[in-house]
Amino acid sequence: MNKKPLALKILDLVSIVLLIAATYLSIFVAPMERVMGNVQRVFYFHVGTAWVALIGFIFTAALSVIYLATKNLKWDRIQVAAVEVSVVFFLITIILGSIWARPAWNTWWTWDPRLTTAAVVELVYIAYFMLRQGLDDPNKRANFSAVYALIGGLSAPITFFSIRLFRTIHPVVIAGTNAEAEGSFSMSGGMLQAFFFALFAFTVIFIDLFWNRIRLGEAQAKVEEMKINAAY
């Protein structure tokens, strides 16, 4: 546990290389989108980070169930790691989306279902960390965070539907959200290449950070345990 495993060191390096390569592909190789101009290039990172963050959040909910069934603190450590890395990636997603929205939709932010749900989900997982901070007992902390992560994960889809009640027909945004999927700009060969490479790169980077964070959690658990022992 103390020594960083070689595989992780290699993964660190691979992640850095992949990040640079993905940046290169998005900026220099992918052709420029004609309508939106260069800013469209952040789209590759936007989707890449969103993809891993959402997988991370779904994984988190599954970990809640596993933890509550087994009550093994190992799953709690894995969950914190997943939540933390996902929150970081999702923050990048939201910021990039906002930067893209400014020239494309002429506003930094609109209250459309996706954006609002993203903001609410991010707040749920920030609240998750505030909950953890207020608890010292590792078992109680793990119980509570598993419960909260599960509730938060379940509420996210309902939140998405509930916002559709409100800002339904926002024409610009609807065109915009479709553009994210495939709509208003169709991806040519170079774009697809950059897109899939970014997805791959961010998946690897996520795994790398996730692994590092799990090791950090293990060290934290060890220190907590030693502190308790030292107190006696």
Binding site: V121, M130, L131, L135, S155, T159, L165
Partner: peptide, 21 residues
């Protein structure tokens, strides 16, 4: 928790967003 009263709205509002809306 240690933070007690402060924490409830922070935990509850994002989750209850859908019901309030």
């Amino acid at each position: 928790t240690r933070t007690r009263d402060v924490l409830l709205p922070i935990l509850l509002f994002p989750v209850a967003f859908a019901v309030l809306l």
